[in-house]
Amino acid sequence: MAKPDNRADNVPHLQKAIQNTLKKLHDTEDYLEEFGEEIPQQEKETLLAKNERREQSIAKFRREVSEEAHENP
């Protein structure tokens, strides 16, 4: 038997995902600032691409939080 869809805790889960992703984004920025001159260009480009994807994910998470908040006031 399938469990009922319980969305009551979606917003807190999404907010935690946003916080975790922001931390990774900032940690990567700090790393690049400190060691950017010492690491290979390919690694730097990989990290910058990851941060772009993180920014996109954060935007999606925030849209989801907004939608959830409007659906479940």
Results as ranks from 00 to 15, higher is better:
L25W: 11
K44A: 04
H70S: 12
R7G: 08
P73G: 11
F61H: 03
R53A: 10
E71C: 06
P12Q: 15
F35A: 11
P73I: 01
E64T: 03
N6L: 00
V65T: 08
D9L: 08
R7K: 11
L22W: 05
F61L: 07
E29D: 15
D9F: 08
L14R: 05
R62H: 04
E68H: 09
K24H: 10
H70F: 03
F35D: 12
Q42A: 15
I58F: 04
V11H: 04
N20G: 09
K16P: 02
N10W: 02
I58H: 04
E38G: 11
T21R: 11
E52C: 02
P12G: 13
L22F: 00
K16Q: 13
D30R: 15
N6T: 00
R54E: 04
L48G: 02
H26Q: 14
I18T: 13
V65P: 00
K60H: 09
Y31N: 04
E52D: 14
H70T: 10
P73H: 12
K44E: 01
L25D: 12
E37A: 15
S57H: 06
D27L: 09
P40T: 09
E64N: 13
D27K: 13
H26G: 07
A8P: 01
P12D: 14
E45G: 02
I58L: 05
L14T: 01
D5Q: 07
R63F: 00
E68Y: 07
E67K: 15
E71G: 10
E43G: 07
K50T: 05
E68S: 08
H26S: 13
L14E: 06
L32E: 07
M1P: 09
P12K: 14
R62W: 03
E33I: 00
E38Y: 12
T28C: 13
D9I: 00
K44L: 00
K50I: 05
E33W: 09
R53V: 00
H13C: 02
Q19L: 04
N51A: 03
K44M: 04
P73V: 01
D30N: 15
V65K: 03
K3Y: 06
N72W: 06
K24W: 01
L22G: 07
D5M: 00
K60Y: 06
R62V: 02
K16V: 05
A49K: 14
H13F: 03
T21L: 06
K44T: 03
T28K: 11
N10D: 12
E64L: 08
Q19P: 00
L47W: 06
E68M: 08
H26M: 09
L14H: 05
F61A: 05
E29Y: 14
E71R: 13
D27M: 11
D9C: 05
Q42C: 08
A8R: 14
R54P: 03
D30I: 07
